[in-house]
Design a protein around this nucleic acid. Sequence first.
DNA 1: TATAAGACCTCACGTAACTGGAGGTTCAAG
DNA 2: CTTGAACCTCCAGTTACGTGAGGTCTTATA
Lengths: 257, 257
Amino acid sequence: MSRQNKYSIGEFSKKTGVSIRTLHYYDELGLLQPEKNEESGHRIYYEKDIFSLHKIVSLKFLGYSLDKIKDLLDEASISADLNKTLALHLEGLEKEKEHIEHSMSAIKRVMNLLEKEGEVDSAVLFSLIRNTQVETDQKEWMEEHFLTGVAEELSKKSDEDKFTLDETLVQLSKDVKQLYGRPVEDMEVQAAVKRYIEASFAFLGEELIEKLADTEMEEAEIQELEKMAPSPFTEEEQQWLNRAMEYYAQQAEMEHS
Amino acid sequence: MSRQNKYSIGEFSKKTGVSIRTLHYYDELGLLQPEKNEESGHRIYYEKDIFSLHKIVSLKFLGYSLDKIKDLLDEASISADLNKTLALHLEGLEKEKEHIEHSMSAIKRVMNLLEKEGEVDSAVLFSLIRNTQVETDQKEWMEEHFLTGVAEELSKKSDEDKFTLDETLVQLSKDVKQLYGRPVEDMEVQAAVKRYIEASFAFLGEELIEKLADTEMEEAEIQELEKMAPSPFTEEEQQWLNRAMEYYAQQAEMEHS
DNA sequence: TATAAGACCTCACGTAACTGGAGGTTCAAG
DNA sequence: CTTGAACCTCCAGTTACGTGAGGTCTTATA
């Protein structure tokens, strides 16, 4: 009953589901070195090798590199400082997961946009993706600038809210492409600016916007921000838009007083 | 105002946060090929290159390979079949995410065990990790064998419940190591078996266990299952344990009737 | 204007965890 | 004895760069 089963590499591969080539590789690395028929050089695997392979595969699953695995296998007692290593690993996985979730969110936003709008200007698309991408950086930046509240609020926004804002941005970009060149006082231009600003207010809430507007920034910092969140517009368009928005702000100011 | 800013590769790298080597690489791949000073060979980047780089970085963020990105950049209209590609990518990311979550769950279970038990036999540890790892396979297998209900139930179990089951398994393995060799009718042996079986019942629920027991399997299928879920015991121990459990079942049967 | 520092150039190897192929040997069956 | 499958070793390629060698260009200062 306790006869030791022998396996050729092919059989072993089938039994364990690990490819022959990978077994060769593990042999080469010294992770799993089976007995060898001295004459033929053919590898001979036993039951115990199944255990070893399971260890390797398990550790790999936990996210260890083969290099680390080799160290771990060599160690007599595995549970020695395993706990620390595992905690560390868990952190790494957490980050990876967050990254993936961000990517997924970005993709969903893009897909949503494509679905609702059909064709979308690629500059807008990419500025949007980039925005999602640097969300973490932005959050950090805001926290550095004592805008912790803003950062918190923003990360609480649902995907739905973001969808809405995305669509607003698309609308704005269409408006800009169409209206660029007209005087900033033009009624249609002002109407477009109004739509955009109101949507932004709706998204952020008035307080947040004002807080942002009140934050003083140095030139270098503005550059920093730009690096993080590229505008979908050309420099000229952006400047024209800025003027239009300033004009809008002035008008609003006057009405208020 | 519309003077075209020029950047050396170093400046460009600082402005965009992309390393010089990476810029070289993108140039080599044809992803972003800036102008060159013919005499010196030094690269000259302009504002427009910032846009291009943003595109590349964005697509990379979405998970595309540089190769794919090149294709996408070459295409005139990006939104052509982007939607399909994105959907596909989303699926891939979903799978990656699930994998990571599985790994995290496995790590947590192991950490929990180490914390509560101190030292744990590595065979048990690995059989447990392996179990988590092949959870998906097991689920598929069960569904193939018309045990959809069981599969569903199992994946609904909380981490807490799994922790408890883990501890039971550890207990059993300790018992087996200690009691192996004694006759299966031995009182302590039977007590250990009882503890284990009752804990399993508590975890799975009686119906599920019976359903599983009633499922007829062929030899090949049993092998399949073994491949998925390795026992932490040696073959001899496992056989001894099986006999002990059979004996337990007989006794239980007799009491019932 | 000479020189030195620093920025830039190309070339080429190293990484992780394999996969794939070439070219040759061994095994098992007929 | 042959034939085909299974096995062997060695080498190359994959991704997205990092790193370093060895040489050229630019720019600031003496």
